[in-house]
Amino acid sequence: MSVSEWLSALLIAAGTGFFLAGSAGLLRFPDVFTRLHALTKADNVGLGLVVAGVALQTESAVTLVKLVLIWWLVLVSSATVCCLIAGAVLRHGRAPAAEEEAR
């Protein structure tokens, strides 16, 4: 395997690690806010690393642009949707778990 192939494999493995951690967080964290925190890390950093890894394997510029576009769209929508979900949950009067315990 060449250097770029090793690097690509390393990046994709690191990205998968973020997805794994995000899934574990989704299952284990106590409330919506911390779960969102875990999920957006997977979407942003995890997908970014996977895209970077796959990008190293492509030779076509068009594919490269498409890959970056996919990452950017997921980035924008996941960040916004995270914000919207958290806002909606707060408006419905649900406090973060830590605050509820403190009461």
Partner: peptide, 15 residues
């Protein structure tokens, strides 16, 4: 309508 939602829609619809 939260401003983030409007911003996202303004961005996504042309795309």
């Amino acid at each position: 309508v939260p401003p983030q939602q409007t911003a996202l829609v303004n961005l996504l619809v042309p795309v």
